[in-house]
Structure formats: structure tokens, C-alpha cells
Design a protein around this nucleic acid. Structure first.
Lengths: 361, 361
DNA sequence: ACAATTGATTGGAACGTTCCAAAAGTCAAT
DNA sequence: ATTGACTTTTGGAACGTTCCAATCAATTGT
């Protein structure tokens, strides 16, 4: 019964039931030996097959429990690769936007018995390739990717082997072979700018981020279009680059205030930048929402709690996250899916940080 | 040379160099065949062994590139398990504290060629076990765990197979076999309370969180000790439970204001709660930092940017993260390590949200 | 009594690597 | 030529699983 191995080295100790393999890990074979069944039976039990008799199943499960066996997915994957985890590759955890996005994705994936796993690129394309490669080496089922700044279609194609399902989100990449699900950055930014124009502002800056982010390029484009549509000649100095952090927002706002003619409002690259700018102004004694107007982008939860509450563009993070996850699942299950980019509706949320222009500068 | 397989089914097409295995994946053997070397040689190249001739190496690498081969870590791990990724299991990405912690851990791990991977339990112990199990099944090298609320030592031991290196952080668990690296919650909370007492406050509430979090229990204990040391009888109604979110903070503060005698200050479960409370007060017309004093906990980056800037306890997130990662690495490398809990120094950061008691309630 | 059917179980061959012992190949010295 | 000391290369045996075809046991139909 027990002892199917026919190794003949140095006659091993006569005890046939010896649960430890040299690696120290309990294996399916150890279980089989202890339970006096074949490894195939144990395997069937693990797969919850209906073929095994209840009695046997119980015995096997008990043994598994007793020996503290852990399933070795690597070995299983070798035969039949049905991966069960999905990589969410994001740029910067410090921006609350990403956690919110991740949470939305996780909800959907967990419902489908997939384990979402987050990895942080710190916006470094090189780290990004490394992460993607490692995920791939571990047999990831699919990837949801927020491309790090400066990522080209080429770079992605390079690190993603053919056949691996990938959904690009947040920021589209030109000539990218993967489906895109994300906000309509151009339109959102257009709406933000239009709102300020409607309030009488003419000198409107675009602050924060820089053009190495695809998202930034798109959002600047929206601002540009709105300004042009309003017949305003664009002063390139109004696009003020800075880190997309609170500190960056403050810094950008400082530069903005130094411009002549003095801008009276700003469209911000995102909410975090807007919050930084807002704080800078408050400290400088400028009352945001009266003396200066600010619009953010993303509608992170902090936006509504800020003082003053931030007018912003709701990019529909939650919905977007859901869509991205669903599309990825479709790809994984080889269902048909829309190849066209899926751009979520953006919506202007007016709060307290914008105000009709009082006196013309 | 090529064609070491001795399969004899249905005489396959006579072409010997056919790079595709039925699985669709390019393997080391396909590379070997195309490059006219043995699989062993390819393996050596992959391991950057000095044994192979430069010429051969070049040829192999070219072939690898040409066929788009991806290393199969599962297969490799089957022989020699040296895992390369580490799980960071956290409770709630929405609390900015966790991303900051994760970032600190990532820094250290990346330096040591380990890939950090984040997983989110949403503070659900069941999801937590599932995550740990899956990580384990994938051959994770080690885990840094912020236990979800309600996690018992038993539950952890249950889901963690013997021998897997685990460091528990943030919140210690009684009778837990794993090393703990985290803040000294009791002391920090004591310092916060002491600060308020020193400013003349007597009616000091503790708001936010609830006792299902170990962290909460510890922080309440600190508050309790400080109050008792100051000879103040403790009114249990002063401990006000609420979600540890901004909304929870607001809600808790609302309840706090309804208490008689009216508390004049509060120690908050964490910064997020404090910020929520602060906003609630501002909206109610109470000026924080004059009419009411608030102390937070964690010193998340937002704390210094808030309006008013938040007095809080610096838990040394960054240092803690570093220590946790280092300790885990020690465990993985089987080096000696301190088994004793490593509790970071907490430091009171006085900002604008606390003020000497003006008029005695 | 024997075949046919169904229900449980099983051995062996994959899967794609790494490691080991052994085999070639190269070169210089005897 | 033979030996020895290298440097390179190589088959084959693991590793822990799943799948397939085959076996064994019990039950049914004729």
C-alpha cells in the first residue's frame, strides 16, 4: 500500500510512513502515504471532485489538517495554468486617488474569486517593467495598469508577453494594443475651465503635474481647448509644472501668483495639487472661493471635506474601476469585449472653491 | 542534437525545430532546440552562470529575445524554492497611514531585490486568512501583517504554516508567536493626553475607532493611564466609538459635544478621525485650537497641512516600516533577530489644534 | 454465471525548471 | 600518444501537482 517510491539509495529507515520530504514541505504524497490512499485521490479531494467517497474524503481532509499541508500552486500551475491572481499596477499610493481606484477594482475581482494584488511603481517605468515581468513569471492571470509617467506603448509591449490580458486605465497611451478604460481627461478639464470662464474668469492657469504624465497632457489639452473656444489667446506661461503632490500644488501656486497679469483662477492637475494650492493661498491671506478660484480633478473623498470644499471634476473613479475590472475579466475568460476605449463621463461638482470674478484684475 | 524528446505518437511533422509546445508557452527547451544547445545550457545562461562561453551565451540570449520567452518561476520554484516576493497585508488603504507605511516597507525591500506586493483585507479577518493562504500557496518569501480588526493569535497561527516568516506590525496580538514591530500605542496616547492635561484640560474624551481594533484598546489604555495619573476619575462615556474615518470622526465629535459636562478636548484614535472631528467643529462654529483642542495619532502627512494644523503623535511610521522590513529580511535569511517586540518611540508634535484651556466649563 | 454498468481508486506520464554527475572539448606538459 | 587540468556542455533525475487511461469493486441486467 504505502510506499510507491522505488528509490533504492542507502536503504532508508524501515519506517514507511515518514511525512517529511527533504524540502521540509508536506506534499500531496505525504498525505497519501499517511492516509493510505494514492496521490491521485488526494488530488481529487483537493479539487473537490465528486468522485471520491465521502468517507475517504473525510480521512484525507483530516490528514491534510493534521500534517499542516499547504497546496503548492506552482506545481499545480505547471500542469494546468489557471492563475487566480491579478496584478494592479499603480503609480503612487500616496495620492488618495489610487487607493480609491484600487478599492473599486478589488470589489469586483473578489466577487469573481480573483485575488487582487497591488504593486507600486513610484512612477518609475523601469520599476514598472520589472514588476510586470515578475508578475508574469509568477503566472498572473491579468494586469490592470496605470502606466507610470513616461511609459510608451513600446515599453509596455516589451514587458508584456503576448497573450497576457492587460487593461490600461487612467491614462491612455498612443498606439497601445491594450484596451483602455478611464476618464475622459480632455473633456473633464474642458468642463472645469468652462466653469471658470462662465464665472467671468479670463486669466486661468493650469497648475501641477508635468507633461511626462499622459494624464497631464490630456488635461492640459482640455484647458487649452476651452480657452481657445472662448477666444482667449493662450499664454504658455500659464501652464505651471510642479510635482503632483500637495507641496507641488503650493509651489505652483506661488509661481502663479507671481505672474502678470495676475491669474484669478486655476484648473489643477488633480485634487491633491488643488488642496496644496488652496492651503498656500489661505496662508498667504487669499480667500479661496472669493479672491481666487480653484478647480480640482478626481473628486477624491478629501475634496468634499476640505476647507473650503473643493469644486472638482468627478471622474467616476468607482465606476471606472468596476469597468476596468470587468473588461479584464472578459479578456481572461476569452469573452468578446469592446476593443474601443471606454471613457467614463466626467461631471463638474461645484463646491465652495470657485466664485464669480469680483473685480477684474 | 536537437530533439531529445522521444515521444512516438503519430509521427509528428518532420520539421525538428518547432518552437511551440502545446501550452502555447515558449519554454527553455524550445530555446535550446532553436539555439542548438541543451536545456541545461539555457538554464545556466538564465542563472548568469560564468560557466558558459560568451559566444554561447550571446546566441542563447538572442534566441530568448527572438522567441519572446518568459521565465517560468513556478517551475523553477519547484526545484529550488527561493521566493522573491513579499506580501504586505494591510487593513484599509483608504487610511493614508497605510500607504505611508507601505511605501516605507517597499523602499527597504526593493533595495534587497524583493518585490513587495500589497493586499487589502478591508479589516476582514476571513479575507485576511484567505489572502495569507493564497500568498503562501504562491510561495511568498515572507509576510508583513497589519492584523485586521478582531484577529486573534489563534487565527494567525491557523492560516500561517509553520516556518513562514511573518512580522506583525501596527498592532500587537497577545500570545502571538511572531515578532512585533510597531509604535508604542499606549505611550503615545499617554503623551497626547498628558499634553492636554498640561494645558489645563480635565474633560478629555477619547474618540473614534472601537475596541475590536487592538490598536484602539492600546490607545485607550494610554489615555486611561494618563487620566488616572492626573487623579481624574474616568467617565466611561468619554470613550466614544465610531468608524475610524473622517465621517466617523465627525459623528463621534457630534456625540462628544452632547455630553455633560462638556469635554473641552479630545484624544483621537488617529489623524483621520481627528481631521473629521476638526471639520465637524469648524462647521459648527467652534474654533479648533481655541475653543476645543484635538490631538491626533500617526502624523500622516495631511496632519501638517490641515487647517488648523493638527497636533498629533508621531509614531515614526517611516522608521517603523523600515524596521519591520529589516526584521522580516533577517528572518527570511535565517539570521538571528531580536524576538522581543520592537516598539518605536512616539513623539508629541504640537501644532495649532491644541490650546490652553480658556474658561473652565 | 457472465457481461455490462457504475463508482472509486490508482499508477504513470506530463508540466518547465534546476541540479548533479558525467562527458566532451581544449590545451599544455610529459 | 598519453596524461592531467582545465573549460564547456549535457542527459537525466528530481520537484509537487494534474490528467488520463487503466484497474478494481460492487451492483445490475440478462
Amino acid at each position: 500500500m504505502a510506499g510507491t517510491t522505488r528509490s533504492s539509495k542507502k536503504t532508508t529507515s524501515s519506517k514507511p510512513a515518514r511525512p517529511k520530504s527533504r524540502n521540509g514541505n508536506v506534499t500531496i504524497i505525504d498525505i497519501a502515504r499517511m492516509a493510505n490512499v494514492s496521490k491521485s485521490t488526494v488530488s481529487l479531494v483537493l479539487q473537490e471532485s465528486a468522485l471520491v467517497k465521502d468517507e475517504t474524503r473525510k480521512l484525507v481532509l483530516e490528514t491534510i489538517d493534521r500534517l499542516g499541508y499547504v497546496y503548492n500552486r506552482a506545481a499545480a500551475g505547471l500542469r494546468q495554468a489557471k492563475a487566480d491572481f491579478i496584478g494592479i499596477v499603480i503609480g503612487d499610493l500616496a495620492n488618495p486617488f489610487f487607493p480609491e481606484l484600487a478599492a473599486g477594482i478589488e470589489d469586483v475581482l473578489l466577487e469573481h474569486q480573483m485575488l487582487p494584488v497591488l504593486a507600486n511603481t513610484s512612477e518609475d517605468p523601469e520599476k514598472q517593467s520589472q514588476i510586470i515581468r515578475t508578475l508574469r513569471e509568477h503566472g498572473v492571470a491579468g494586469i490592470i495598469l496605470c502606466p507610470a509617467r513616461g511609459t510608451s506603448a513600446w515599453a509596455i509591449a516589451e514587458s508584456v508577453p503576448k497573450g497576457l490580458p492587460v487593461v490600461v486605465t487612467m491614462c491612455s497611451i498612443e498606439d497601445c494594443p491594450f484596451p483602455f478604460v478611464g476618464p475622459d481627461n480632455v473633456k473633464g478639464s474642458y468642463q472645469a475651465t468652462e466653469h471658470l470662464l462662465g464665472l467671468g474668469h479670463r486669466d486661468i492657469a493650469f497648475i501641477g503635474g508635468d507633461s511626462s504624465y499622459g494624464t497631464h497632457r490630456e488635461r492640459v489639452r482640455g484647458w487649452r481647448q476651452a480657452m481657445q473656444n472662448a477666444g482667449i489667446a493662450i499664454d504658455e506661461r500659464l501652464v505651471i509644472d510642479a510635482a503632483s503632490t500637495r507641496e507641488g500644488g503650493a509651489e505652483a501656486m506661488m509661481k502663479t501668483m507671481a505672474l502678470r497679469p495676475n491669474p484669478t483662477a486655476a484648473v489643477c492637475y488633480n485634487d491633491v495639487v488643488a488642496l496644496g494650492a488652496s492651503r498656500f493661498l489661505a496662508e498667504a491671506g487669499v480667500i479661496v472661493g472669493r479672491d481666487f478660484s480653484l478647480v480640482g480633478f478626481d473628486d477624491i473623498s478629501e475634496a468634499s471635506h476640505a476647507q473650503p470644499a473643493l469644486t472638482t471634476i468627478d471622474a467616476g473613479i468607482r465606476q471606472m474601476a468596476k469597468n476596468a475590472a470587468l473588461r479584464l475579466l472578459q479578456m481572461i475568460n476569452k469573452q468578446d469585449y469592446e476593443k474601443a476605449p471606454l471613457r467614463g463621463e466626467t461631471k463638474l461638482i461645484v463646491r465652495a472653491s470657485t466664485h464669480r470674478l469680483l473685480r477684474k484684475g
